[in-house]
Simulated scan of single mutants.
Amino acid sequence: MHRGRRRKATYRNNASQDPVKSTESLSSFTSSLMESVALISVILALLTGCCAGQNVLPPGPVNGAVGGNVTFTTTIDPSTSTQFIVITWTFRTASASVTVITSSPGGEVPGPGYEGRVSVNRITGSLELRQLTVGDAGGYTVQLTPNGDAPLNGETTLGVYEPVSSVTVTANGTDLVEFNDTVSLTCSASGTSLSFRWHNGSSDIITSDRIHLSDNNRTLTVSSVLRSDSGSLSCTVSNVISKATSRLVILNISSFEYLLCLNNDM
């Protein structure tokens, strides 16, 4: 009798603890399931990023000249590609997005302001943009929609520049006296995003305690000129699409003793 009651009591104690263990097991199972779901989501996101979200445009920027043409070339291999169902190019600025062109088997529909200026390769999705203006500079995106597959996307930027032209150099003097005179030369040019370099003959001019560049390298100043500063000076102006060089400016530098001799002879 006592043994039966003891077993029954033990059974009741175990039964009273089972709900707690069941709750803990269920919580552990739920936590493991959520971790598995999160891991699967990360894997799917990575797979989607490698495939549908890949950038089908090479690293930019693409650069062009005002009035010229550029081609945004995709990375699509024409030998393995078929025509896309829809190709959409978009121009983006900080404040707006404008459709450049939409191309489908039914034809091409250019956006406002792009009529007659754009065309699309139906096999690769590449875009040709003609008659460039400064206003065309900015970001561009493309979406290529194949038949039955996820869209392919790409983005890049376009820079539009005025070509370099009309490069000239002016000097405050060209017949100078050694140790006595200071000469200042200024280079001017037309174009956008200009860089300036100075040369003496075929060698680049290097700054020193006597030789200074200012105004974004537009102005060259040589203090207390030496006869070694004599020569044919020029200025080369460049940007990412073009460059041009000025005519030569000849510096004649005489010694002070030579001038004294000349004055005595007179």
Rank of each mutant, 00 (worst) to 15 (best):
G4S: 13
G4Y: 04
R5E: 14
R5V: 10
K8M: 08
K8E: 15
K8F: 07
A9P: 00
Y11M: 06
D18L: 13
V20Q: 06
V20M: 03
K21P: 02
T23P: 00
S27A: 15
S28P: 00
S31A: 13
S36L: 12
A38N: 15
S41H: 04
L44F: 06
L47F: 08
L47C: 05
T48L: 09
L57V: 08
L57G: 05
P58T: 07
P58F: 04
P59Q: 14
P61I: 05
P61M: 05
G64Y: 02
A65L: 02
A65F: 00
G67K: 02
G68I: 04
G68V: 05
T71S: 14
T73F: 05
T74E: 12
T80W: 03
S81V: 10
F84P: 09
I85Y: 07
T88F: 02
W89T: 07
T90W: 03
A96Y: 08
S97P: 03
T99V: 15
V100W: 07
T102G: 01
S104K: 05
P105E: 02
P112C: 01
G113F: 09
G113Y: 10
G116M: 11
G116V: 11
R117C: 03
V120M: 07
N121D: 15
N121V: 10
R122V: 13
I123M: 12
T133R: 14
V134M: 15
G135Y: 09
D136A: 08
G138P: 15
V142A: 08
D149A: 14
D149M: 08
D149T: 06
T157H: 12
T157Y: 12
L158V: 11
V160M: 05
V164K: 01
S165V: 05
S165Y: 05
V167M: 08
T170G: 06
A171V: 13
A171Q: 07
A171P: 12
N172R: 07
T174L: 03
E178L: 02
F179D: 14
N180P: 00
N180R: 14
D181H: 12
T182L: 06
V183E: 07
V183P: 09
C187V: 00
S188V: 11
S188A: 13
S190L: 11
S193P: 01
H199P: 00
N200L: 12
D204F: 02
D204C: 00
D204R: 01
I211Y: 00
L213W: 01
D215S: 11
N217Y: 00
R218V: 00
T219R: 01
T221Q: 11
L226C: 05
S232V: 10
L233M: 06
C235S: 13
S238F: 03
N239W: 09
N239L: 10
V240T: 14
K243Q: 15
A244N: 12
S246N: 04
R247Y: 02
I250Q: 13
L251R: 01
L251Y: 06
F256R: 03
E257S: 10
E257A: 05
L259T: 02
L262W: 02
D265L: 14
